[in-house]
């Protein structure tokens, strides 16, 4: 440790590791991980989100899980909370997850084709 910059570097790296516990700001990706969700393949989806976000070094995004969202036929369901806005993605897969990260999280464009709204249409 030689300077404040060194300290700041460690701080940022460590903060990323623990940000779940302090940083409630930013985007939250919630993966439905009830029994039905897991059965439908939610686990690899979530791992895919984690991987992708880590790979791209995106900050202020929290990936978390939740219980049954209540629409089992659409599982795996993923909800993205960005401020007050909530987007619900359904029938997610590992590849779809990657695309959501790229388009929605990075570029801010909702991937309309995957949302629950588009399905109903």
């Amino acid at each position: 440790m030689k300077s404040i910059a060194d300290l700041e570097k460690i701080r940022e790296a460590a903060l990323e590791r623990v940000n779940l516990r302090s940083d409630r700001q930013g985007i939250r990706i919630v993966v439905g991980m009830a029994t039905c969700g897991i059965a439908a393949g939610a686990r690899p989806v979530m791992m895919s989100f984690l991987d992708e976000i880590k790979k791209r070094g995106i900050e202020h995004v929290v990936v978390t899980q939740t219980g049954c969202i209540g629409a089992c036929q659409y599982e795996p369901i993923v909800e993205v909370y960005d401020g007050d806005e909530k987007t619900t993605y359904i029938e997610m897969t590992v590849d779809k997850a990657k695309r959501v990260v790229l388009e929605h999280i990075v570029n801010g464009n909702i991937v309309d084709g995957y949302t629950i709204g588009s399905y109903k249409k």
């Binding site: 404040i4 300290l7 460590a14 903060l15 590791r17």
Partner: peptide, 13 residues
């Protein structure tokens, strides 16, 4: 490192 993450040793610096 967790202490540092929550602004630890910043005051000392």
């Amino acid at each position: 490192e967790e202490y540092i993450a929550f602004d630890g040793y910043k005051a000392l610096a």
